[in-house]
Nucleic acid binder design. Structure first.
Length: 258
DNA sequence: ATGACTTGCGCGGCAAGA
């Protein structure tokens, strides 16, 4: 089973690239973030015509997540524990996988900048809620994957110029600490299970020629339950998607599970 | 370098992103 995740930075602006990606990568499940539209505005018909079931958790203007799946899925919207949280950042699907199931979440973790504001407190709180939910899911002993835009640079090797990120919400000690806490529950960073290589990025800013200079960061991740990690075959970043006309600033990252 | 793009909203120029 192939599972991919991609922050598209507006699904309506990225529809052509998205359809091309479904055709070339043929993911069984594709998690999307920053769809930036309400459910009714999502290009559902075009994606269904490409052979996918569509589940959205949209919002006007900002955020918004979705899960596209070849097989019909059972869907849950919203991260538990978000009393009064209006931001659409979490959707979870249960899909058939061989003679069992896989549970797959599409997550858009808050950016958190500037760190001196309540935006950062919201980010840290959201990470605590994600960890609490992961702890509950682990009890089920299922094959599950938490995939998405974490807005976390886990390690110095995950940025071309780590010094530039020293005081940023994506790299502050507290941010990385909470990401490690997630891993310490027993989750596996899929890309890091496949390689220790530095310089593997999933985001390049639109500004200042970041792509041309390869000034990128790795912030999109797939975290695997032990049952999923046991089945991990490969992980890959689809970097070529950043070289297209009118690209997203993020590229897809995908894994294959046996 | 108080910058640089890109998006939504909505029609002027700001907020948000990372």
């Amino acid at each position: 089973m192939r599972i991919a995740t991609w922050n598209v930075n507006s699904v309506r602006q990225r529809l052509e690239h998205l359809l091309a990606y479904l055709k070339e990568a043929e993911p069984d499940v594709l998690c999307l973030q920053e769809i930036k539209c309400v459910d009714e505005a999502f290009p559902r018909l075009e994606i269904e015509s490409a052979g996918y079931n569509v589940a959205t958790h949209g919002q006007k203007t900002f955020n918004g997540v979705a899960i596209l799946s070849k097989q019909p899925a059972e869907i849950t919207r919203g991260l538990p524990g978000g009393d009064g949280d209006e931001q659409a950042r979490y959707i979870e699907a249960v899909v058939p996988f061989g003679n069992t199931i896989a549970r797959i979440a599409s997550i858009y973790l808050p950016n958190g900048n500037p760190p001196t504001t309540d935006k950062y407190a919201y980010k840290l709180g959201w990470m605590d809620r994600l960890a609490a939910h992961a702890r509950e899911l682990l009890k089920l002993e299922e094959c599950f994957v938490l995939a998405g835009d974490y807005n976390v640079i886990p390690d110095p090797r995950d940025a071309r110029d780590i010094g530039a990120w020293a005081g940023d919400a994506l790299y502050l000690p507290q941010t990385r600490e909470k990401f490690r806490a997630l891993l310490n529950l027993g989750l596996t960073d899929a890309l890091r299970a496949a390689t220790d290589e530095a310089g593997l990025y999933t985001f390049w800013d639109y500004q200042a020629g970041a792509w041309q200079k390869n000034n990128g960061i790795r912030i999109d991740h797939l975290l695997l339950s032990p049952q999923a990690a046991d089945r991990l075959q490969s992980a890959a970043i689809d970097k070529h998607m950043r070289a297209l006309e009118k690209p997203s600033d993020h590229v897809p990252i995908r894994i294959d599970l046996a």
